[in-house]
Amino acid sequence: TNNNLQKAIDLASKAAQEDKAQNYEEALRLYQAAVQYFLHVVKYEAQGDKAKHSIRAKCAEYLDRAEKLKEYLKKKEKAPPA
C-alpha cells in the first residue's frame, strides 16, 4: 500500500504552502513529518532503486530547507521583541 507515500507527498506539499505563506514554524513541522514518512517508505516499502534514489534526494532537499527555517526561527526568537 503506498498510502505512506501519498501521506509524505501531501505533507511535503502542505509544507511548501506554509513555507510560501511564511508560516515557518508550521512549514518546519510539516517538512520534518514529510521526511519521516518518505524515510519510512524508502526503508520499509519496496521501491525500485530509481524511486528510492529520487525519494532520498527529496528528503535531502526538504531537510536542507527545514534546517534553514530552524536557523531563521532561532535567530528571530533571539531578536529583541519589537
Partner: peptide
C-alpha cells in the same frame, strides 16, 4: 561529478538533529 545521494542513515541523522530543540 555524480551528485552523491544522501543515505538513509544520513537522512535519519539530520532528521534527529532537526527534532532536537
Amino acid at each position: 561529478a555524480k551528485k552523491s545521494t544522501i543515505s538513509d542513515d544520513e537522512i535519519e541523522r539530520q532528521l534527529r538533529a532537526l527534532g532536537v530543540d
